[in-house]
Design a protein around this nucleic acid. Structure first.
Length: 271
DNA sequence: CTTTTGACCTGACAGC
DNA sequence: TGCTGTCAGGTCAAAA
């Protein structure tokens, strides 16, 4: 589910209820996520004070006075702050109980998410160390994309999903940004022109900013920290619209199978 | 090195 | 009402 805009929406919703709060207790009902929740996490996190809620790519970082909890929502994860007395439903795997009677609850039916703990600089953690620039940050620009695409045969859609080149973009926004830039998802990366790289950088920024403003995209089960859906799905131009009409030219939206995942495009608007 | 494939999971949905 | 097959927002590790 969650790509950068959904994770950022979650982060913004968590900041107020979490910052400055103490974690009094940690309940791990199901430790088997993408990686096993460390046995030490409950003990180390209990008693800490949450100083900041940050995001890097699709990771959420809960910075405490002692260390940092690294969270990933995988495909189906969501986080909510609710009264600690709320009965846990199926797939509610972890609670961080706070000092005000509330708790941060992690739900993740598919268990592709992660909850890890480090006392060191989280940016040096093995999962974060090799991440490419933030697409909304200064490190992401046309020069970077140009250099990263040279001599590469991968389809442009797949290059945008490569978190070492640019982080935080998933299948929805890769497809949407490529539509906006007029580039087919199947186009070999090395065949992009300099101008197209410039257009694509702008398109990626625009799409992500719009999606954040809309509170993210809810296709089936994304909800923000207040349990509410996003509404960017109403704005989608190509993703999931196979057979429907292009909002720009009226042509029929097509699907391409790239690897195991669908790519969507308008054959007239994108080349 | 680059690129592809399989793996990890549950749930929703279509079709029989 | 089953049952089976397909698909889903991620991404790592291993194979080619």
């Amino acid at each position: 589910m969650p790509e950068l805009p959904e994770v950022e929406t979650t982060r913004r919703g968590l900041e107020r209820p979490l910052r400055g709060r103490h974690v009094v207790r940690v309940i791990v009902r199901e430790p088997r996520l993408r990686w096993r929740v460390p046995r030490t996490l409950a003990r180390e996190l209990a008693g800490t004070r949450i100083e900041a809620v940050e995001r890097r790519a699709k990771y959420l970082l809960l910075r405490t006075n002692v260390g940092t909890a690294i969270l990933h929502l995988g495909m189906s994860g969501s986080l909510r702050v609710i009264p600690a007395t709320t009965p846990a439903a199926k797939h509610d795997h972890v609670d961080l109980v706070l000092d005000n009677g509330q708790c941060l609850r992690l739900r993740d039916p598919r268990r592709f998410g992660a909850l890890l703990w480090t006392r060191d600089d989280p940016m040096q953690h093995a999962l974060l160390r090799h991440l490419g620039p933030e697409p909304l940050g200064r490190g992401f620009h046309a020069d970077h994309l140009w250099a990263a695409t040279r001599r590469r045969r991968v389809a442009m859609r797949d290059l945008l999903l490569n978190s070492r080149i640019v982080s935080g973009i998933g299948n929805i926004y890769a497809n949407e940004a490529l539509f906006l830039a007029g580039v087919r998802p199947t186009r070999p990366a090395g065949r992009l022109t300099r101008t197209e790289c410039e257009r694509l950088v702008k398109s990626i920024r625009r799409i992500l900013e719009r999606a954040i403003r809309a509170g993210g995209t809810t296709l089936r089960d994304f909800s923000n920290a207040d349990g509410l859906p996003g509404y960017f799905q109403q704005t989608l131009q190509v993703y999931g619209r196979t057979g429907e009409l292009c909002r720009r030219c009226g042509n029929s939206i097509k699907t391409a199978r790239l690897g195991n995942r669908s790519a969507f495009y308008c054959p007239k608007c994108q080349s």
